[in-house]
């Protein structure tokens, strides 16, 4: 079932901002901070804390090609657990040796080490599926992003209730049979040549 710790519960419309302009990585993290502030998950000071994390520890938050998971630790600036989804009009470099440039910044405000686990797991599943990742990144607006998330959650909840495997269950948003086949194929063969993954193009190549 889709509960209070689900991705759709922690990623409201107001925390989703598409094709934002950012002149550098600090600016990009700030966009994520603004989205977390808009949704009520954090106060404006949290953006500075996320930036400070990168300044202290380096760009390790760029967790995959093109994707940064901006966050800091629980603090008075975190008002409640929440996530933000910010895509950039132009990718920016974080200084990561392999995963730059970044075109998606996921913001995380966490009150503890547990309340965001389910949502982060769902997000990782969605992003690791080439077809769904492409759909999410191509969504025309915030409602489109949420529609993909909620469709996936309902599909996996239904599949779990039916006792069947969820790995290749396709959300209704993945409209065509071709997209489903591509999803199945890429789930089985995620090793791309040379380990390089084009964040936007892989799903299209498979399809």
């Amino acid at each position: 079932m889709v509960g209070p710790g689900s991705l759709s519960a922690l990623l409201p419309l107001r925390a989703i901002r598409l094709r934002q302009s950012a002149r550098d990585w600090r600016d990009a993290v700030r966009r994520a901070g603004e989205a977390l502030t808009a949704s009520g998950a954090a106060s404006p000071a949290y953006a500075d804390e996320m930036i400070a994390t990168v300044e202290q520890l380096g760009p390790y938050i760029v967790i995959a090609p093109g994707i940064a998971l901006a966050h800091s630790r629980p603090s008075p600036a975190v008002l409640r657990t929440g996530l933000a989804w910010v895509t950039l009009a132009r990718p920016v470099r974080f200084g990561h040796p392999e995963n730059d440039p970044v075109s998606l910044v996921v913001g995380l405000a966490a009150v503890d080490d547990g309340a965001h686990v389910e949502a982060l797991a769902t997000l990782a599943e969605l992003l690791s599926d080439d077809v769904r990742r492409a759909e999410l990144l191509d969504a025309p607006d915030a409602a489109g992003v949420r529609a993909i998330v909620t469709a996936y959650e309902h599909a996996t909840a239904t599949a779990a209730a039916g006792g069947t495997a969820t790995a290749t269950t396709s959300a209704p948003a993945a409209a065509t049979a071709g997209a489903t086949a591509a999803a199945a194929a890429t789930v089985r063969d995620t090793a791309s040549p040379g380990g390089r993954t084009q964040i936007r193009q892989e799903g299209e190549v498979e399809a």
Binding site: S72, R73, A110, H116, V117, L120, A124
Partner: peptide, 15 residues
Amino acid sequence: VCGMGLGSGLLLRMQ
């Protein structure tokens, strides 16, 4: 191991 113990480290654990 990650910077804060609750973001990327959590992803690593799940994976």
